[in-house]
Design a protein around this nucleic acid. Structure first.
Lengths: 348, 348
DNA sequence: CTGTTAGCGCATTCAT
DNA sequence: ATGAATGCGCTAACAG
């Protein structure tokens, strides 16, 4: 039993008693090969449990069978859904997905791109929102440009300022605006916003949308109406705590994501408030699970899987050489049980 | 602008005016290199935005920087949590994660292993439960054995009969038994089980556990008490519908997973039943989100991230040459709001 | 310490 | 249609 015993194409060729070239051709179907020879090769390969060495294939210039996906945290259902969309189309193209998690660390994101570059991935998909940071953008471009020059394709989900990559852009701003307007129409006049750090472009866009929608109704959001925390469930919980502590009189809390809304609702409920009787709460994304909440969450629905699927399709399609094409996807306001008309007077 | 312009180590060496070998050593820190030379190499590499070709590195026998994770569906929070654990330790080892989704298709699972094998992944982690199918097991072994022979490591989460791979095994059976007993102690006497297809070993183990726990209390589960459907949220919803249609008189529904429980609760609620006043419902896994449900779900808590993390650690640790070591992790019964003492008489 | 050289496994020219 | 030879980019002997 030798140390590492990889079956190579040469083994297959020898077993089939053909040349290396013929074995390669028979396996790849590149060129016509006499039937009996091909049979021999195929059965030899099967017998030896041969698997081509993808590295050798890639090196020899034969293939690039992987795509890289970079997200903040795969256990966030938002990224899970997007990644699922990516995997669907990757699967249909016979591509393998390399998933990299950055845990929202800008430096780690850079490192991931570098690693994916090294793997000569066919395409790199940036699914997390960008960081609003000049220096970081420059470094990211410094990674991506050589990658592109080497034939790599790049696509991003959501806006990446000055990255001039193919983009799939959900309408965060418009969706947020529409939601704010819808809540105003419902009768709400006192609002609070619960959100993540605004250096994330997604967050910034959504908050801007909320502001615009409210402004259109003549309502200004002051600094004290915006509660910022981490962009996850616990952030929502904490922000709602702060809101409660500040005795904020909002009848409606606009939240920048469904996951944060989850935390908001829990905090409110623990404080003895009823959603939506005392406070209406809205989310953003329409994660699969929020319809199963009690009450089901009103939210801005985004076609998450499509976001991922189209990002990969865009990257794979040589269309315009991966210049900055932008595919916009709308968000849809979904009013469910977590929102209601405000009561005349607030209890407690 | 040539077609594909990859910067290679040779370019770096030439720019730094050193030999190829020196450049390689300077970059990898393999051997001591004179400081000034090393400086020249490093700055040349930076200037040219050089990234080593991972394929060439792998081919030359230098590295195996990726691990493969195979799961059923990354948008299932169960797999997302496990994968997150894997990614954490992968990150700390400088490894990249290749994620493959099988959508619970046995054939696709085989194909994924083959692809990962081709990529010469350091380790392959099977996180989905096995399929109870002799022929399938044989074919899987036929993929895995040569992979191992080539130095590849394999670890699985949950039981894979006769795969003799390193295993991280949550105590599905024991946890299920404990939950059944807990519900009996709470006062329940009429039970129903909602579950996925029993050809999945995880499902089979959990159902067995339920049966054992109930049997210990003198309660036999008949065929009509078990509602089988797809192992996801919609499956739970459908199964609960069937249960309702059959006018089953259970006061407690034991569900094989949290995701299924999500569907069960929704269906029950839509039918006008209250959880837990009319029916108690239990889940399995303790997904992060279930504590935010109203009522929060009683469930068997599994350390999901640890499952993934330990699987990779096990695979990476050369310990006993990847023989069938088994690391068992207990499940803990968590009683929350979705369960209560049965009422004397059932309403409706 | 540094440079030269030989493969790693494969796809792909070239000849035949 | 098939076989022999070249090189992809890199690391690890091997010499100096």
């Amino acid at each position: 039993m030798s140390d590492r015993q990889h079956v190579t194409l040469e083994d297959v060729a020898r077993t089939a008693e053909v040349s290396l070239a013929t074995a390669s051709r028979a396996l790849n179907g590149t060129t016509r090969v006499r039937d009996d020879l091909r049979e021999r090769v195929l059965s030899a390969a099967a017998e030896l449990a041969y698997t081509p060495n993808a590295h050798a294939q890639a090196l020899a210039g034969g293939s690039r069978r992987t795509v890289g996906v970079i997200c903040h945290d795969i256990s966030d259902p938002y990224f899970a859904a997007i990644t699922r969309g990516v995997m669907r189309v990757a699967d249909s193209h016979g591509l393998l997905v390399m998933l990299a998690g950055t845990f929202a660390d800008p430096d780690r994101e850079l490192a991931c791109v570098s690693a994916l570059r090294a793997q000569r991935a066919t395409a790199i998909l940036l699914t997390g929102s960008a960081f609003e940071d000049r220096a970081w953008e420059r470094r990211m471009a410094a990674e991506l440009d050589p990658y592109r020059r080497g034939g790599g394709r790049v696509a991003v989900v959501t806006r990446h300022r000055s990255l001039k990559a193919d983009t799939v852009a959900p309408d965060n701003r418009g969706g947020a605006r529409a939601m704010a307007e819808a809540m105003h129409r419902l009768g709400h006049r006192r609002f609070a916003v619960v959100t993540g750090p605004e250096r994330l472009t997604t967050v910034a866009d959504r908050v801007t949308g909320f502001r615009e929608g409210l402004a259109a109704a003549g309502i200004e959001l002051s600094e004290r109406d915006v509660f910022t925390s981490s962009f996850d469930r616990d952030g929502g919980y904490a922000a709602a705590g702060a809101l409660l502590a500040a005795r904020h009189r909002a009848t409606c809390v606009l939240t920048a994501s469904d996951v944060m809304a989850l935390g908001v609702v829990s905090a409110l409920r623990e404080a003895g408030l009823s959603v939506p009787d005392d406070v209406s709460v809205t989310g953003f994304d329409d994660l699969p699970l929020v319809r199963d909440l009690a009450p089901p969450l009103s939210t801005v629905a985004l076609p998450l899987e499509r976001l991922g699927a189209e990002a990969l399709e865009l990257a794979l399609d040589p269309g315009s050489a991966s210049r900055g094409r932008v595919r916009r996807l709308p968000g849809e306001v979904l009013l469910r049980g977590s929102t209601a008309r405000p009561r005349r007077r607030r209890r407690a």
